[in-house]
Write a protein that binds this DNA or RNA. Structure first.
Lengths: 113, 113
DNA sequence: TTTCTATCCATAGACAATCTATGGTTCAAC
DNA sequence: GTTGAACCATAGATTGTCTATGGATAGAAA
């Protein structure tokens, strides 16, 4: 089974927060950015993205304001809050610990227990 | 939100298959092994483990037989099948691709788009 | 001989996170 | 005036993991 989806479950918030760390962006732009920066390996569906943004708003990790885009449209721009920046740090370190742990399991060859 | 759990969603099958690659094991032993090899960073709850094993059985990636343990108990020993071994390879490479992609996003600092 | 702990099995139900599907608005190009 | 891309957003299905529960047995300790 594993994951049939477009990204690893549990990593979406991390990806969004990290993307917003670079600069405030609207939802569509966030999805584009993640796709582009990951060389098309990660695709965030809108049905995943907007609920995630709602969660992040509720947590106070991002804030949103309506602005006009370069293409002259109304769009909600999301900005990382200080709390969000802190949260991003937490998630990164948690994620790295996970990766290290999984790496140990994958690297494990053969020894006594 | 991220993940409150004990492991990254989407990685459990990978961890189980990898653990069984070393040697056939019963459920309890699989959980112990993952915990030990990961230096206690990854804990697989029984309520996660057994449903996962059922899925793996259904997929034909592992097979099971009742045996007697070293401690003289009846236990179901799970063994990786050839298909399971192949699947493990797939999941590892998929996982590594994911990690690389996420790594690119995390490493991304500041540039035009 | 009772009781406790560790070893083992397994399922039901809750919950969280993502995806699919849908529907809508507006700008710009044709 | 139609099309397509840029944008928003929600409902419902699905999946995966966790919590909670329940049970059996071996061996040690009391």
């Amino acid at each position: 089974m594993a994951n049939k989806g477009d990204l690893l479950p549990g990593t979406l918030d991390l990806l969004i927060l990290q993307t917003l760390k670079r600069a405030p962006l609207h939802g569509y732009g966030i999805a584009q950015s993640i796709k582009r920066v990951s060389d098309d390996a990660l695709t965030v569906e809108e049905g995943s993205l907007y609920p995630a943004l709602q969660r992040l708003l509720l947590q106070g990790w991002v804030k949103a304001e309506w602005k006009i885009t370069e293409t002259n449209r109304r769009a909600r721009f999301y900005t990382l809050t200080p709390a969000g920046r802190k949260q991003l740090g937490l998630e990164i370190s948690k994620f790295e610990q996970m990766m290290a742990a999984i790496g140990r399991v994958l690297a494990d060859a053969e020894e006594a227990g």
